[in-house]
Design a protein around this nucleic acid. Structure first.
Lengths: 197, 197
DNA sequence: GTCTATAACGGGATAGAC
DNA sequence: GTCTATCCCGTTATAGAC
């Protein structure tokens, strides 16, 4: 692993765990087993390092999520596959949701301007597909935007309170993962039952 | 308004807006139009001031939410009223969800030990009511804990991405409020449709 | 590329006068 | 209770040797 990659990986872990502000470049340097000067040699500043990591994240996950929304699938299949794919990503790293919320909270304008982020929150083809199904009478009339928001809420929110859930039910990380896994079907059923009635 | 209240109010606004770490005691002092020494005279430390504000929040909202869960209401009425009450609180201050998530992320152990917080996440009577209805065959068999988690997700998550939503649909604060208001029925319908089929 | 040393700054907290 | 002045610390960033 290159020094640059080593720094990024260490920094990412710390940012996830403690957030941007509570992570010092000293922490990062220590974890990556390099010194502060070297960190600044590669990334010029802590903010720059962070931005680089965040862009990398968007690039890694956005394309597959977007392409799924544009696939030629039945609405129900698309919903279930989207849930599954999204949750797989989040289960890989359960701190991700809060991490992204934090970035949005601090740097909303900057993030909004990133093209990858624009892609991530562009679900027009999904909206159109729902509108078609509503017109055809296959599903109940409803607001597709609110429906999509509901889907995202059901997918993402539980990860933001992982600590509370794990604590309340005395779960290990593995048990939490399984609990989230169970949700794939539950969420799908709930969303489908809403539009089918 | 007493000096102490003035400090708390100013600090709360800043903590909501910028978070604990990015809010300096100098910011707070400036906003409250006092000086740093006075702030430390009243609260000893920034952390102490924060804790005092957070406790106050829990004390303010927890009781009415808890008592609603223990009321003698039909399951459907309870769900709809709980959604409505919770969302009223969050609409009053849309930054509250992220604020609490941040605290949970940073200080989970300390928060878990607070008795008011324990009350807030204690929904046993709701679980029992659902189990009874399932046994009676009035609603579909399902996991009541996951159901409650779904309800909370649908209620809370949209507030954490208020910026993204307002931006995408070019909403004013008032329009966002109305958008959330619409959700009361949508969320209720979705949850009810799930357990009625 | 990698290191040591240090500059420059901003933060929280306190001493002590009034 | 309220103020001014200041201390002390941790942080980022950079200069310069190797």
């Amino acid at each position: 692993m290159s020094t640059e990659e080593k720094i990024k990986k260490s920094a990412f872990k710390l940012f996830l765990e403690k957030g941007f502000d509570r992570t010092s470049i000293r922490d990062i340097a220590e974890k990556a087993k390099i010194n502060i000067a070297l960190l600044n040699y590669y990334f010029r500043s802590k903010q720059n390092l962070f931005d680089s990591i965040f862009s990398g994240l968007l690039d890694k996950y956005t394309p597959e999520l977007c392409s799924l929304l544009n696939k030629d699938l039945s609405l129900e299949d698309k919903i279930r596959q989207y849930i599954s794919k999204y949750m797989d990503i989040l289960m890989e790293n359960s701190e991700l949701v809060f991490f992204i919320l934090s970035v949005l909270h601090r740097d909303h304008q900057k993030i909004s301007d990133m093209s990858m982020f624009k892609s991530l929150i562009d679900y027009n083809s999904f909206i159109e597909q729902m509108e078609k199904e509503i017109k055809k009478g296959n599903i109940k009339p409803c607001d597709p935007h609110q429906f999509y928001l509901n889907m995202m809420s059901l997918i993402a929110f539980p990860f933001t309170i992982k600590n509370v859930i794990s604590d309340k039910f005395e779960m290990t990380d593995e048990e939490f993962r399984n609990y989230m896994l169970e949700r794939k079907n539950i969420i799908g059923d709930m969303l489908i039952s809403y539009i089918k009635n």
